[in-house]
């Protein structure tokens, strides 16, 4: 049984374009949660960078190992060496924050250049970018990263260059699609007819005025990817090494005690990963629904 209810009283004016009408409340919830996560991550990064932590993340307390949350001054409990989990979680953001920014910078800049070449110049540029896209899609990303690690060194910045490059084709395709759409509307021809130089058309009228929402959305989703890769690698032991904390190596370290029933030291960083990746993904998708109106239903 499903219920359909008529609005009592007269039906108000309806405007297709009004954002409020188009926005589903759920999208606002997504974006709200995403922004909250971003704020917490940025604030925690600052705290970690300046060393303003609730506790010394390296101070061991052998008398108080694997403590549950809310025990004597440790709001989130302690790990297997009795170190404060809250402080280590905050410090763990250092492991992916700047590398993640590097990755999304590479994919946004590189993707924009490729996308403009494909969309604006077209022709065989388009073919080459399609080829490049298929080529990068051929490698399981983690395997490609492990190859780079083996050939060079296990450095997170090398890894993030790979993540950035593999993220380029998606953005390139979206921008090329946007340019094709603008062409269809004779937008670009009109801009040229006004006598605007090519770089003004490309940088201002295409990238800034028409693609900024798209780029912000993709950067947000790219951050989620970067966090996923960093935590996976540090779980595998290729990222940040003990005793420096990262969420991945915290899960790994805690896992030894997991099977004894002590899941908190491993679950706390896992939940942090879950909540953060979820936040960036929901922010990206929510913004996409609101700004680009992509929802199909």
């Amino acid at each position: 049984m499903r219920r359909y209810v008529q609005t009592p009283g007269p039906i108000g004016e309806f405007s297709e374009l009004a954002l409020r009408q188009r926005a589903e409340p759920l999208d606002l919830v997504y974006v709200g949660y995403g922004l909250l996560v971003v704020a917490v991550v940025v604030a925690s990064y600052m705290l970690g960078a300046f060393g303003w932590l609730p506790d010394d993340p390296q101070a061991m307390n052998v008398g108080l190992i694997n403590a549950a949350p809310f025990t004597s001054g440790h709001v989130l409990g302690t790990d297997f060496l009795g170190r404060d989990l809250q402080a280590r979680l905050i410090l763990g953001i250092q492991a992916y924050f700047l590398p993640g920014l590097l990755a999304i910078t590479i994919s946004v800049v590189g993707g924009s250049i490729l996308g403009i070449l494909a969309g604006y110049r077209g022709g065989w540029f388009d073919t080459i970018i399609t080829y490049f896209d298929n080529l990068l899609d051929s490698f399981p990303r983690l395997v490609l990263i492990l190859l780079v690690i083996a050939a060079f060194k296990p450095d997170i910045y090398y890894v993030m260059v790979v993540v950035g490059i593999t993220g380029m084709p998606v953005i390139a395709n979206l921008i090329a699609g946007k340019i094709a759409f603008l062409r269809q509307k004779s937008f670009i021809e009109a801009a040229h007819a006004l006598g605007l130089p090519a770089h003004t058309v490309i940088l201002k009228h295409i990238l800034w005025l028409n693609c900024r929402a798209l780029l912000v959305i993709q950067a947000t989703l790219g951050m989620a990817e970067a966090i996923l890769v960093e935590t996976s690698l540090s779980y595998l032991g290729f990222g940040v090494q003990e005793p420096t904390p990262s969420w991945g190596n915290m899960v790994q370290a805690g896992a030894n005690y997991f099977l004894q029933g002590n899941f908190w030291p491993s679950t706390a960083p896992a939940l942090a990963i879950l909540a953060t990746i979820l936040g960036f993904q929901l922010l990206g998708d929510g913004l996409n629904n609101l700004l680009e109106g992509k929802r199909r239903r």
């Binding site: 049984m1 499903r2 219920r3 359909y4 209810v5 008529q6 009592p8």
Partner: peptide
């Protein structure tokens, strides 16, 4: 004369 509500077993 106005339909106000429909409950339907689709």
């Amino acid at each position: 004369g106005r339909v106000m509500e429909v409950e339907k077993d689709e």
